[in-house]
Design a protein around this nucleic acid. Structure first.
Length: 525
DNA sequence: GAGTTTGAAACT
DNA sequence: CAGTTTCAAACTC
């Protein structure tokens, strides 16, 4: 079933709330998108335009304003979390349309139990030596474990729709993640056209989560790393609805082995969970993004200083350790197995994975060795880009890159960190983030010593910002400094964004501006 | 297993 | 935005 069809169905089913619904769907995609940001980006674009087409004149309803602390404190009866949702009916209604097709959190109690058992089983299996990706899928977005599981449920076809788009398929082309061939996608698409959505294979829902790929599955599990694939929290006061809760923060529901008290992070409290997530994400859109960004390109995130010492990973925000010397798992960098960076505000850093010394990141030799290869590849790649850029520069008549690419091809080109212990972050924000553009500006204008509000998550992914994302509602999320306690979301709101937008159409500058990140690569420069 | 330490998250 | 409080994991004994 194609997107248009999907929207038609949605309209038919939810006409009275059509505008809101689709708008909500868009937001869902924004805030709850799983790994494949490309597909979601494309869909959002389509939905945005479809929204105008289908729902002209339909009054858009403001999203429910979730009371802060409502889930945690709003109800005296903690067993009735639904009562604390101020606008539950709307919320529920909105989600209903989406949920049916995408994220089927709501399910019969029996099914919930099955899922819980499933999770348990998966975790147990993992503990017994079997690997699985189903238990915990770190990353931004909704409770991916639920998604994966829900995908087995009948009603998910929205995501399937994403994957039938040729455009989306193209967008995958830059990914190192094995994906379905176009033929496969098309075939499945046709199949979906003729068969009930119940038949939608899970593989289509999230290729990354495709259980059919044992290899992948295993790798994902390995990526998850020790103790990461099966979160088990012990929350007592947060009701597992705050980022304190590891399960919640990881985007998974709590399961039986958790020792939490008054846990709301369960499928039965889906709406509370979602509301809370939204609230948190409204404050910090990247709150649920992986904290550790593994990418050779993260080399760029810390600016010129860091570029001198390539690293394969960075903590998104950097740590703030005072006493642990970044030598204990209190330190998020250490815990993530990555070195501290210029973004860290730690004191007395002795991180064995690479410590921060002033503005210079010192990488362990072993780490360096590992990164060297990647670095060399990057170097070659960048040099090639430089050459291409020069050609473009010398040929003003051509505003387009010499090698035309699909609209989003550049957006998710580096996923080498997939091979590490994380699934890719939802890169939806990458598109909206435009931090690369900002950075490219700031690279030229900001002091090297100054910590720059760069979001490593988005850092290396975007070379060309899709226009649609700049114009899309999701591009309006406010920026928060990464150097503050809160994570840096995309910074479109910055004063530079305007100029970035203007420059955006000119690919030349963008490409050229990415060059300084590797100042020492080319002796001729 | 209880108590302490730690730093992120949340709050003011 | 900085300071403070809350929280739960990590750690120690």
């Amino acid at each position: 079933m194609g997107l248009e069809k999907m929207l038609d169905v949605r309209e038919a089913n939810d006409t009275p709330n059509c505008g809101r619904l689709i708008s909500d769907a868009t937001e869902l995609l924004v805030f709850r998108s799983p790994n494949d940001s490309e597909a979601f980006r494309c869909l959002v674009d389509k939905i945005s335009s479809s929204e105008r087409r289908f729902c002209a004149g339909v009054k858009s309803t403001k999203r429910p304003d979730i009371n802060k602390d409502v889930p945690a404190n709003g109800s005296s009866n903690e067993n009735e979390p639904s009562a604390v949702l101020p606008n539950e009916s709307v919320f529920s209604l909105n989600r209903g349309g989406m949920r049916r097709r995408c994220l089927d959190f709501e399910m019969p109690g029996k099914r919930k139990k099955e899922i819980a058992d499933d999770q348990q089983s998966v975790c147990d299996n993992k503990e017994a030596g079997e690997s699985s990706s189903s238990c915990v899928v770190p990353g931004i977005g909704l409770h991916l474990n639920s998604v994966a599981l829900s995908a087995r449920d009948s009603n998910i076809n929205v995501v399937h729709d994403y994957s039938i788009s040729g455009e989306i398929q193209k967008s995958f082309s830059g990914s190192t993640t094995p994906i379905q061939s176009q033929d496969t996608v098309q075939e499945t698409s046709d199949q979906a056209e003729n068969e009930p959505v119940e038949e939608v294979p899970r593989a289509l829902v999230f290729p990354e989560l495709n259980s059919g790929s044992l290899k992948k599955k295993k790798r994902v599990s390995e990526q998850a790393g020790e103790g990461e694939s099966c979160k088990r929290c012990n929350c007592k006061k947060s009701k597992c609805l705050k980022l304190y809760c590891e399960c919640f923060a990881a985007g998974v529901y709590c399961i039986e082995p958790c020792s939490c008290i008054d846990c709301f992070n369960k499928p039965i409290h889906e709406e509370t969970v979602l509301a809370t997530r939204k609230q948190i994400e409204s404050r910090n859109p990247l709150a649920f993004a992986p904290k550790v960004i593994r990418s050779a390109d993260s080399i760029m995130e810390a600016g010129d200083d860091a570029s001198k010492t390539p690293a394969s990973a960075r903590h998104k925000r950097g740590c703030n350790c005072k006493k642990s010397n970044c030598l204990k798992k209190y330190c998020e960098c250490y815990q993530g197995g990555v070195g501290c960076s210029i973004n860290c505000r730690c004191e007395g850093c002795k991180n064995v994975y690479g410590r921060k010394e002033g503005s210079l990141l010192v990488i362990m030799e072993s780490k360096q060795e590992e990164d060297q290869e990647t670095y060399e590849k990057r170097r070659a790649k960048i040099q090639h880009k430089i050459e291409v850029s020069r050609e473009v520069e010398q040929n003003p008549s051509s505003d387009q890159p010499s090698t035309p690419l699909p609209p989003y091809r550049h957006l998710v080109v580096h996923q080498p960190f997939l091979s590490k212990n994380r699934l890719p972050p939802t890169q939806f924000f990458i598109g909206m983030g435009s931090s690369s553009f900002r950075k490219q500006d700031s690279d030229l204008t900001q002091s090297h010593n100054e910590k720059k509000p760069i979001d490593p998550v988005t850092e290396d992914k975007t070379e060309i910002m899709p226009e649609i994302l700049l114009n899309s509602p999701i591009a309006n999320i406010k920026a928060i400094s990464p150097n503050s306690k809160r994570v840096s979301p995309p910074q479109l709101g910055s004063s530079e964004s305007g100029s970035n937008l203007r420059r955006r159409g000119n690919g030349r500058k963008l490409i050229l501006r990415s060059i300084p990140a590797f100042p020492s690569l080319n002796p001729n420069q």
